Amino acid sequence: MPIDFSLTDEQKELQKLARRFAREQIAPVAAEYDAREEVPWQVVEKLHEVGLLNAIIPEEYGGLGLGMLEEVIIGEELAWGCMGIYTIPMASDLGITPILLAGSHEQKQRFFKRLTEKPALAAFALSEPGNGSDAAALRTRAVRDGEHYVLNGTKTWISNGGEAEVVVVFATFAPELKHKGVLALVVEKGTPGFKANKLHGKMGQRASGTYELVFEDCRVPAANLLGAEGDGFKIAMNTLNKTRIPVAAGSVGVARRALEEAAKYAKEREAFGKPIAELQAIQFKLAEMSMGVETARAYTYYAAWLTDQGLPQAHAAAIAKAYASEMAFEAANQAIQIHGGYGYMHEYPVEKLLRDVKLNQIYEGTNEIQRLIIARHVLSG
């Protein structure tokens, strides 16, 4: 059977919907909410109205049941409008994924209903102040007490952490067991002993809420345990192996926006008596940006296809995430260079593209961690 690179009619319609939404609902307010460091709830509500929020939840639980390829098609378009605003639904899908992977039918019914009956978000709480990339060295402690677990500890850099209806929290029940002593608990908004403190002063993605989560004798029902005790590390890693792919898609969206803005400006700006688009030095920059966008998109689609086929995707996801995020940062950087002094000012959107996409090299596992994953795959043969 020949390889088919075309999208289905349904995927094309989904792409059109997401593209129109980004142009009409996200791009016009992106700079405002970046400056205010606030979550644009009216955009979240409209995402829910058109079905683009929490769309990976299966149909039987009230969602659209979209696959990974559909998720990345949407992701590129929304991130074109604003990577910070796109991080809101992307991080919600990150919080949903552990429940999809390890939740029981009853848990999916219970938690997903909270995410589909109204505009609502999920979150994923793994990172801690002292162990961002060392996921096996958790200090947040979960102690079984009858029909509850008592949580104590602090999580940080948690997207949607203060807004989320449900937060999947990873904690240790036996520190001496390291990664084998980790469990995953779903903590619901409003649970006593659970507090969220918003972090301010971020370089970029300021329209997305980032939080420190504090748990002080927080009693969580044992019925909220995903899988079994000891499954937490595996659940977290399997989640990240999937959700790095939407980060790559967002990076492609940012890079495409950088290319479009740079090409538009190059055709308008004149120097030495002609548009700078006619200068070979500018053309080479635009060509490099285009090469990066097309290559990153193709590989991101490949990683998404592997996921949808149920094939191993950790290696491909790591490549897609690392390559696309670094390519996008360079594309934004070159877009600023083409704009010259204007690119350094808020008047044009390219400086924000650079600030926003830097985080894509850090969250969902730093790109250094991605290189470790890739190297292990190479060395394993």
Rank of each mutant, 00 (worst) to 15 (best):
V167G: 02
V167E: 00
V168K: 14
V169K: 14
V169N: 15
A171T: 05
A171L: 11
A171V: 05
P175Y: 13
P175W: 13
P175E: 13
E176I: 04
L177E: 15
G181D: 13
G181T: 13
A184P: 08
A184M: 11
A184E: 11
L185W: 06
V186A: 04
V187E: 04
V187L: 06
E188I: 06
E188L: 08
K189G: 02
G190E: 07
T191Y: 04
T191A: 12
T191S: 07
T191E: 10
P192S: 11
G193W: 09
G193A: 09
F194S: 08
F194G: 00
F194K: 07
K195M: 03
A196K: 01
A196N: 03
N197L: 14
K198F: 00
K198P: 03
L199R: 08
H200D: 08
H200V: 06
H200C: 02
G201M: 06
G201L: 03
G201T: 06
M203V: 15
M203H: 11
M203I: 13
M203C: 07
M203K: 14
G204I: 07
G204S: 10
Q205G: 01
Q205P: 00
R206G: 04
S208W: 01
T210A: 01
T210V: 13
T210F: 04
Y211C: 00
E212L: 03
E212D: 05
V214N: 12
F215E: 06
E216G: 02
E216I: 11
C218T: 13
C218M: 13
R219I: 04
R219D: 02
R219S: 12
R219P: 03
R219E: 14
A222F: 00
A222S: 12
A222L: 11
A223W: 08
A223K: 15
N224E: 08
N224G: 02
N224R: 02
N224T: 07
L225C: 04
G227T: 15
G227Y: 08
A228T: 10
A228G: 05
E229I: 03
